[in-house]
Amino acid sequence: MDVTISRLRAELATWIERAQDGEEIVITDRGTPVARLSSVETAPLIEQLTSSGVLTRPRHSSRPEARSTSRVRASGPVADLIGEPRR
């Protein structure tokens, strides 16, 4: 189950209850997964799978970046850049 940060904040108790019931919640920021909310009981399982080699920890904790293109610097509102190709 995916949930946006704003919805998570507004309904935090509900999402915590769902995690306690065993559901895994992926928290997204503008459509990008940024965190996972799960029951405390799942932590030992993750550690066990990591130590047995089934799972591996990420090499970098930062979010992936696009490396093949240069970043566009906006000289005005971003909305103008988005609307420009549509004209």
Rank of each mutant, 00 (worst) to 15 (best):
P58T: 02
W15D: 01
I46Q: 00
V34R: 14
S62C: 09
E11C: 08
G83Q: 15
R63Q: 02
L12P: 00
P33G: 02
S6E: 15
R59Y: 04
T56S: 13
V26K: 13
L37S: 01
D29F: 05
S38W: 01
S51K: 15
E65K: 04
G22M: 04
S68T: 15
S52C: 06
V26Y: 05
A74K: 09
S6Y: 04
R30T: 01
M1P: 01
E84V: 00
S51D: 15
P64S: 13
P44S: 12
S52I: 11
E11V: 06
D21W: 01
R67I: 03
G53K: 11
S52E: 08
T4A: 11
E17I: 04
S70V: 11
P58D: 02
S75F: 06
R87Q: 12
G53T: 08
T50Y: 09
V72A: 12
T50A: 14
V54T: 12
E24P: 00
V34N: 03
S61H: 01
V34C: 06
T42W: 04
D2K: 10
S39E: 04
E65P: 00
T4M: 11
E84M: 04
A66K: 13
Q20E: 12
R7W: 02
V72L: 05
W15N: 07
D2H: 12
H60W: 03
L45F: 13
P77A: 08
